[in-house]
Simulated assay, not measured.
Amino acid sequence: MFALLSRIYHISNPPKVKKNDVDEKGKPLNFGCLGAAKITPGALIKPSYSHAEVNLYAVAARDAKRAEAFAKEHGFQKSYGGSNGYQDLIDDPEVDVIYNPLPNGLHFEWTMKALKGGKHVLLEKPATNTAAEATAIYELAARKNLVVLEAFHYRFHPAIQRVKAILDSNELGTIKNISASLTAPSGTAPEGDIRWSYELGGVPLWTRDVGYTVNVLRYLASSNPTAVLTAKAVPYSSRPEHKQVDKMFWATLSLEKEIIGELHSNLDEAKLFGIIPRIPKLSATVKCERGSVEIFNFLIPHFYHSITVSPTGKPRRIEKAYSFKDINLEAFVDKVKGRTPQTWVDSEDTVANMKWVEEIYAKDGFGSRPASKYVYHEDAT
């Protein structure tokens, strides 16, 4: 408990470094943030405090007063607001990087506009609504020699990397089965939350759960699926507007190397006795020919996690691997600065994840999320 409280304190109060000193690493990157999303403080603002090369330069929001208040609260130097606020931020010549945590349905349009404006992009997951859109983003980034990273933060944490190292060491032998679950108690996403908006590319299977579960499945297996064997989703409600909006799902996939993958997600898990929220299931279990390994809380391992290794015929052991640095942000800065990051989520990885999320939807008949209506033209906004 003391260790948990200590981690929460350090995560909430990261050490601050001086931003004004130009050291051997060079000038800090000016970050511009699109929107005032709830994820931004944890994903960018607080981690930036301990990064000398990250400067919170500007934020934009549709509401000018909200943008100004957000900038003042979190230490951004400038704010942009109004109907043209996002584009004004992109057009600011002092901005080096755009952080895009907008609703999923807006990711493609504003990432393409940011790249067109010559900005690197740190893009919240899922990158886009379709694999085709993700492909277009990375093709434009390559043409303009710019960096785009889909911010699957957990991939940069030593906990999941330790699990993969155990599997890669062959201690447990060949992988046979991988199961991944991600659930949250009822009320986590209340009525009106963008997760329930089909038009904004929402729904749990897309926004969070299947994106993460497919990703961890592929990462630990070191391979891609070959087919979706089964898929079942439960609609959020019986209303017509929710016919393509799921609140829970199950899927079974076959992967290369004869691995079977099982996924489960539920963003509306019923409370015990109708009043007690259930503990979220945020786990992945890998069964191998000579034992198994399970990670609890692969999603946000910096708060708490456990890695349980159970070799056949040997004592079970529990490992942990913590780090208070936001390695996701550090890797992104390294890439922009021309250095080799500790690990990376490349374009092929992002596109493959989107492809198999779409395949799961197709199997169940839900269909892909709506493609963006934005059409990129080099000579137009």
Rank of each mutant, 00 (worst) to 15 (best):
F324Q: 13
G313R: 12
Y322T: 05
R317E: 12
T340Q: 12
N328G: 06
I327S: 09
E319P: 07
M354A: 12
K314I: 02
K335A: 08
V345M: 15
Q342E: 12
G338R: 08
I327V: 08
P311E: 10
T350P: 01
D364Q: 08
G367P: 09
L329A: 07
P341A: 08
D334F: 11
Y304A: 07
D334W: 00
K335T: 06
Y361D: 09
D346Y: 04
Y322C: 12
E359F: 01
W356D: 06
K325I: 03
E358Q: 12
S347F: 05
E330H: 07
K355L: 01
K363L: 03
F366M: 12
T343N: 15
N353V: 03
H302P: 06
T308Y: 00
F366K: 14
T308G: 02
V333D: 07
V309A: 03
F324R: 14
K320L: 04
H302K: 03
V351C: 13
G313M: 04
D349E: 14
M354C: 09
F332Y: 01
P315Q: 10
A321N: 06
F324S: 11
F324E: 13
E358C: 03
D326Q: 14
Y361S: 10
K337E: 02
E358Y: 01
I327Y: 08
R317H: 12
K337P: 01
Y322Q: 12
D326M: 11
N353G: 06
Y322G: 05
R316K: 15
E319R: 04
F366D: 04
P341W: 10
A331H: 10
E319S: 09
K314T: 00
K325H: 08
P341T: 04
D334N: 13
I360P: 02
D346T: 06
E359C: 08
M354Q: 14
K335Q: 09
K337F: 02
F332W: 02
K314A: 14
K320M: 10
V357C: 15
V333R: 13
E359Y: 00
S306D: 14
R316C: 03
A331D: 08
A352Q: 12
F324Y: 10
G338M: 07
V336E: 09
F332K: 03
Y361G: 08
N328M: 15
K363C: 00
E330S: 15
A331Y: 13
I307P: 02
S347E: 11
K337Y: 01
S306N: 09
D364W: 10
K335P: 05
T340I: 05
E359T: 02
R339H: 12
K320N: 13
F303T: 11
I327W: 04
S323I: 04
I318Y: 00
Y322K: 12
W356M: 09
R339G: 00
L299Q: 07
N328P: 01
P301V: 02
G365A: 01
E319Y: 01
F298L: 15
I327H: 13
A352I: 03
R339F: 05
M354N: 03
D346G: 10
T343G: 08
A362C: 05
D334H: 04
M354W: 02
D326H: 14
P311G: 14
D326N: 14
A331V: 06
R339S: 05
A321L: 09
A362E: 10
